[in-house]
Write a protein that binds this DNA or RNA. Structure first.
Lengths: 228, 228
DNA sequence: TTTAAAAGATGATAATTATCATCTTTTATG
DNA sequence: CATAAAAGATGATAATTATCATCTTTTAAA
């Protein structure tokens, strides 16, 4: 079993606040798993009973709406923790997580994390900070969903992907999203997302090759997302 | 100056986790203010430098969108704390708070709250819980904004008001919102909100007398909000 | 490699929602 | 109390977005 205290990924999240001893304890109880594209990491209503630390890969985190559509709330990637919210509230998950490509994730059981939360106040403060940042982010998304048009939201989403994900050697965004996934991030019908993407391509804001997306004009996308 | 340890309102929020001694310390440094309807409690970009504890009254908490409309994120009432998020992130406020009626609020300076956050882990866990609950709530709103129609969101908002606010002796919701406020909660144009309200009245789901709103048919509103 | 299924694309059309204009009612202020 | 300003209401119209149908392309599995 790999050692948490030697894992680079740890430096990217709140686990960096743990002491060497605490990390060794975590190492001994954690489990590592390979998750295949399309596999469900956890589902709505499930008891997660711990937190996941993403070593590699990307997953979409969504919530089913009353009308049967899956709204994607966020994308989680290498270095992210997920499951803290449900753990803290001591509730089943309100969200579902599905791998967008093959992933490697570590699972740390609830009791071990709770122990650190009780004993290491730097760790607690870091988690508190994460939740505060997530809440701010979520409130911002509420405003965008409520006030921006679908076109603005698509532009914004593309910029967000460009900022938060690497690009491949050929310049394409290194994240594999179906048109339906994109529509479920934006909160629109798949056909509308496809049409707008085609429009953006025609206006040379982006280029499309299959699922590959190339961001061509950040400035115009930014203007668009702000309503100009 | 009134004493926090004798304040009923405290029982409604995380301050209930503080010891008698801690509360006495808070009492001595807090300030109490009367806020008039329409007054700004704090604005976007402001350093709040503490948290507010609402003793009485209601305020709307909003964020300005790029298109110049104020999206109302939440309504805060007696017993609620506000300002913890900015305090924890050590950032200026991302939100604006405006009194909807005359209010009585206490202000606790940042350093005092931080002291308790560092020393009283029950208090910290309670705040952590609040943020976790707020995050879940906010994610739910994202889904609704993205997936529900304006009509569904209006029905949902009315039910939310009915659940979270008292009714006056005459049966009207005890909260004073303009049509514009309602539109800014729902995320729609004021005219659209007005039109839909008139429609709901015509269908006897609600009654309207000036700013007073009477909820008449909870079941139908619930069905409507879920798309039936 | 073949082939069925899934994903992507596009047109036609309907439904929803925003905007602008105008009028009425309510509210706040001297 | 008078009166200007703000809020509320409603119609007409335009813009946005969803839905349904159909076709093509890509993907995955036998």
């Amino acid at each position: 079993m790999s050692k948490c205290d030697q894992c680079i990924v740890r430096q990217l999240n709140s686990l960096k606040e743990l002491s060497k001893d605490e990390l060794i304890r975590i190492s001994e109880c954690k489990t590592s798993t390979l998750i295949k594209r399309g596999d469900v990491l956890f589902d709505e209503g499930e008891h997660i009973n711990g937190v996941f630390c993403i070593r590699d890969g990307v997953c979409k985190v969504s919530k089913m709406s009353a009308n049967g559509k899956d709204q994607i709330i966020k994308l989680i990637k290498k270095g992210d923790l997920i499951g803290e919210r449900s753990l803290i509230s001591n509730e089943t998950s309100n969200l579902k997580a599905v791998a967008l490509n093959d992933m490697e994730v570590c699972f740390i059981p609830k009791e071990e994390i709770m122990k650190d939360l009780r004993q290491n106040s730097n760790f607690t403060m870091s988690i508190l900070n994460d939740l505060a940042a997530a809440l701010k982010q979520s409130d911002n998304v509420v405003v965008d969903m409520a006030q921006k048009t679908v076109k603005q939201r698509l532009a914004e989403t593309l910029l967000h992907l460009n900022k938060n994900f690497d690009t491949k050697e050929n310049g394409a965004l290194d994240i594999q999203l179906s048109r339906e996934d994109l529509a479920n991030i934006i909160g629109t019908a798949t056909e509308s997302a496809i049409r707008l993407l085609s429009g953006f391509k025609k206006e040379k804001l982006i280029d499309l090759k299959g699922k590959e997306i190339f961001i061509l004009d950040i400035v115009k996308l930014k203007n668009l997302s702000e309503g100009f």
